[in-house]
Design a protein around this nucleic acid. Structure first.
Length: 116
DNA sequence: ATACTGACTAATC
DNA sequence: TGATTAGCCAGTA
């Protein structure tokens, strides 16, 4: 299974009202060093139909390029789900960061890890 | 095949 | 604490 297919699965597992980091997605795809590819894929829509607006960088900042049509679209979508976004485009990872359960992590590993 | 680029990160300074 | 630098790796030229 290719990396982008994995990304699709992982990204769609992010719950509403939560955000995940690029590195976290990469890690869950069993590709810990592919954070940049996550960004690239979302930018070009290579991962299919995924909630790209729930992906932020390691500091909780919205990278901004998520603007499909409007620059603030990412912020709007997040706030609709109850995620507070500061005016400089930053979310509180402690409060809104996605913390996958052990069983979720195990499930991803079962899907991706065993084919390495 | 080589070089440059990028929605990234972690380590240094 | 805030700014720089140095790895990272797939995609593109």
């Amino acid at each position: 299974m290719d990396f982008y297919k994995r990304m699709n699965i992982v990204c769609r597992a992010i719950p509403e009202g939560k955000v995940a980091t690029y590195g976290q997605i990469a890690m869950l795809c069993q590709r810990p060093r592919n954070a940049r590819q996550v960004g690239f894929a979302l930018n070009r829509g290579l991962a299919g139909d995924v909630p790209a607006y729930r992906i932020v960088n390691s500091q909780g900042f919205l990278s901004g390029a998520a603007s499909f049509e409007h620059p603030a679209l990412q912020c709007i979508l997040l706030e609709q789900e109850g995620v507070k976004v500061s005016e400089d485009g930053c979310v509180d990872l402690e409060g809104y960061g996605w913390k996958p359960s052990i069983s979720e992590i195990y499930e991803f590993r079962r899907q991706f890890g065993e084919e390495e």
